[in-house]
Design a protein around this nucleic acid. Structure first.
Lengths: 176, 176
DNA sequence: CATAGTGGGTTCCATTTTGGAACCTGTCAA
DNA sequence: TTGACAGGTTCCAAAATGGAACCCACTATG
């Protein structure tokens, strides 16, 4: 599968990955959420080459995640800002933060804390069910086709495979 | 910044991106959560080259996200399974699903639905504050240094920049 | 007026990473 | 004996990236 075709898959993960599934793009978005808006600031903070930065910003504009806004006339200057669709990437970025905090924090602890202005506390993000409000556990979620599924949907989990040879240890397989 | 050094940044996003910030890696993880466990199944579903697949699986093993488990002796066969740290990536994957569902679903609707076994409903994932339980809005979150921050921390937002020339439209800048 | 600085890029070339296809190794089944 | 299967590795050409230099419109300084 080529990179170009990814966005056409009948899979929301693939479609999102076709927009932001790139190391640099994710770091650019991190900086956007920290308030960075200018070409040279991104470049200096990330150590990315100008060439690749220009390419990624262009793609994020096309994808509707960022927009250019003038902040000064003569000389004309524009800054890159998150659109509403861009701001909606926040749960993904916070997901990255949470995993890093939990599994890569080192002995000194978290590099950054987040405070919720509404309640005044430092918090961890928690993923919950929109229907019952409980925290989500992957083992408690069942996946099934929706209206946008294609027949012969690519993502469908293959039937149980039991191995063709003798000596199988565990022919049965439980879900992830 | 080189790819290798990313994991050493004092930033949880950068550290997580150094593990999973790659198009193929994210798609491999999607398939892991759908129950795929074998080399050839990943390869056939993704259309990834075997070479790159072997490389990504190796890196995920090293990172402690996947583990190899024997499912058969003679000939020896092993499958790739998510570890606890791997299962903990679930919020990130669901974040990708949610964004794709919202912004790339097309007219036919979502390709896939998720049902919460605990409450029986199809749901959307919602990111909430661990302290007050409210849904999180990026504009309601304040970021500040934690115990693991480095002095001169790289991620710190630069001071307000107002432009050096006359004709500024909006010298002041509000946070993202 | 000449010179230097700034924001936001583009161009060029060498190095890395991918894509694509073929090939290898045990083991087993027909 | 031939073929299939799981799980890789090797090889080469094509594409992406890193690094550095260069460009342009405009402004500020001497």
């Amino acid at each position: 599968m080529r990179w170009q075709e990814l966005g056409k898959e009948a899979c929301s993960v693939a479609r999102t990955v076709s927009v932001i599934g790139d190391r640099w793009t994710l770091l650019i978005l991190r900086d956007c959420f920290l308030g960075i808006r200018r070409f040279d600031d991104f470049q200096a903070r990330l150590g990315i080459t100008r060439h690749v930065l220009a390419d990624r910003l262009r793609k994020l504009l096309q994808a509707g995640v960022l927009e250019k806004r003038p902040y000064q006339e003569r000389p004309k200057r524009e800054e890159y800002r998150l659109t509403e669709a861009g701001l909606d990437l926040y749960p993904i970025l916070m997901g990255l933060v949470r995993w890093g905090d939990r599994h890569r924090a080192g002995k000194r602890g978290r590099p950054v804390l987040h405070r919720h202005k509404a309640c005044g506390n430092d918090f961890e993000p928690v993923l919950t069910c929109s229907e019952c409000g409980e925290a989500l556990d992957p083992r408690q979620v069942h996946v099934h086709p929706g209206p946008g599924a294609r027949s012969g949907a690519h993502w469908i989990v293959p039937p149980e495979r039991t191995g063709r040879y003798t000596g199988a240890i565990k022919p049965g397989r439980s879900r992830a």
